[in-house]
């Protein structure tokens, strides 16, 4: 599996809040989470793509991540215009992603 830059992701996990529902394991598209002793654990945080699925679907608020549009065109657009990052997927801008 290809890996992106090391030690940049903002994923935070509070083990004490975990109730072991395994929702994070279901929704994570990057196999970040494992499960041991009735609780989730982070296998490799560098695999995280910050999509935010785990935070959205953790009913107990054990996971936090600053999710966002991980596309250079969108971020540069935001930097230049000061607007929300958008990558043209909605046809407003024509820089290409997704």
């Amino acid at each position: 599996m290809m890996k992106y830059l090391k030690n940049v992701v903002t994923l935070q996990y509070e083990k004490t809040k975990c109730k072991g529902c395994k929702k994070c394991l279901d929704v994570c598209p990057s196999r970040v989470f494992g499960f041991i002793d009735k609780k989730a654990y982070i296998i490799d945080r560098n695999l995280c793509i910050e999509c935010g699925a785990c935070e959205k679907n953790c009913p107990h608020g054990a996971l936090k991540v600053d999710s966002g549009v991980g596309c250079a065109a969108a971020q540069i657009y935001s930097l230049i215009t000061g607007k929300e990052p958008t990558c043209g997927c909605d046809g407003e801008e024509s820089s290409g992603c997704c």
Binding site: K3, S30, A72, A73, I76, L79, S95, G96, C97
Partner: peptide, 24 residues
């Protein structure tokens, strides 16, 4: 190539921002 981060399935927004700081 940097723009292709938007198409890739394994990049993160924090990583993209870090690259931007140096690249731009």
């Amino acid at each position: 190539a940097f723009n292709f981060t938007g198409c890739s399935t394994y990049t993160s927004v924090s990583g993209v921002k870090k690259e931007m700081k140096l690249a731009i």
